[in-house]
Write a protein that binds this DNA or RNA. Sequence first.
DNA 1: TCATGTTCTGGTCATCATGACTGTAAGCTG
DNA 2: CAGCTTACAGTCATGATGACCAGAACATGA
Lengths: 238, 238
Amino acid sequence: MPHQTEAPGDAVTRLAVSTVIFALRPDHTGRPALWTPLVRRTREPQRGLWALPGGWLPPAEELEAAAARTLRLTTGLAPKYLEQLYTFGEVDRSPDARVVSVVYWALVQSDEAARTTAGPNVRWVPADTLPGLAFDHNRIVEYALWRLRTKLEYAQIAHAFLGETFTLAELREVVEAVLQRPIDPANFRRAMLASGRLIETGERLAGARHRPPKLYRYDTSDLTAEPSASLTRERPAS
Amino acid sequence: MPHQTEAPGDAVTRLAVSTVIFALRPDHTGRPALWTPLVRRTREPQRGLWALPGGWLPPAEELEAAAARTLRLTTGLAPKYLEQLYTFGEVDRSPDARVVSVVYWALVQSDEAARTTAGPNVRWVPADTLPGLAFDHNRIVEYALWRLRTKLEYAQIAHAFLGETFTLAELREVVEAVLQRPIDPANFRRAMLASGRLIETGERLAGARHRPPKLYRYDTSDLTAEPSASLTRERPAS
DNA sequence: TCATGTTCTGGTCATCATGACTGTAAGCTG
DNA sequence: CAGCTTACAGTCATGATGACCAGAACATGA
């Protein structure tokens, strides 16, 4: 496909797809924080180390589909948000052959995360305090964290962590957990309502020992905010 | 490298690196506009069509180095700014084998662009009105254009189109050409000076028939503005 | 029943960034 | 030196944002 047409030779360069998955879970203090699932490597190289879910790219499978499939196979998760993060291809990032990894990042709902495939080879860890991972996966997660946090500022993907309907307090809790700083409830409300992307459901969430908050839904009809809509999508075919 | 270790089988999936290059040149109205160099395909498939500069990824070469090398070989250009754009891997984007392309985008100085390798197989075209390109390259350029324009808003890479020193008017002309709208000179000055990234050289640019403007230099010392500094760099080893 | 605690929710105020605009400074040209 | 052009400095209105305040509305427990 490139204009040069030397034969690529033997397949010494291999193509893999991996995914950094984020979900909100209570940390040791009880407050919601970012967690990410890891899988234990059962083969060499780096056998026994924890790594990102992933796999080799099948020739007939789309990149995004491969990301969704491998994370479903290894963790049982179906992402609500899935987007390409970056392609890592340093020559020495894997000790054996040259491996180029197209890495995606995904957001899953909290209740979904609770249904993760259990087992000794899958484990959730706090995204900010990772153990030593295989290959360059620590660096990859750090970059994914940075991207998540900057994207939360200018775009609205916080609702990807939540269910279909949510209160403003729940949405704010998500943003606070991701950005790791408290946000004034009144100002947050004003900004969110001014964005015009929240739709009142008309219902309220009763049961708590305080004034029942309104339930909102996210307006997914407007795609103009993401000019790269053809490249990023929500709710991929899981 | 992924946790699954099925053999990747035959190398039916091939890995390529391509680059979208932008430079400022006067368009038919005489105003500076974005241009991009294309190369003509000399082999099948899509022989004769114009395409982005690129080539297959050698097993021992870094992705970014491969991008810099292929664009130098085909166009003779050395980019001042080079960053990974996106990885395109749709199964059907190439008629023959499966091809996954890691695409970079580059900015080159105007005077550098004038030194492009001449020949019937290299051609500069206005980035906004492209002819029909090979494969999915039209879509790729459109995405690169969007990324360039959004990145110019929040970051300051306009100086990548210019030389070492420049006047505020020159810098403003770059931004106006990229964003395709006039910018108030006084407001632009205020915003740029407030950013704190411009350093006065102490010199002025005389010779014009008006008050000589100050010459500025860009402050490259501060890397905190780009938290992903490890992934994006300026002035790659050309 | 009713006070109490809690959060929801609507509002004010100061600050800052930004767009529109005006006026003066300082060079070159004829 | 008159006149032209752009550099540069400053004002004003507007809108977004952070800090803060106060009433509304519910569950709970006295």
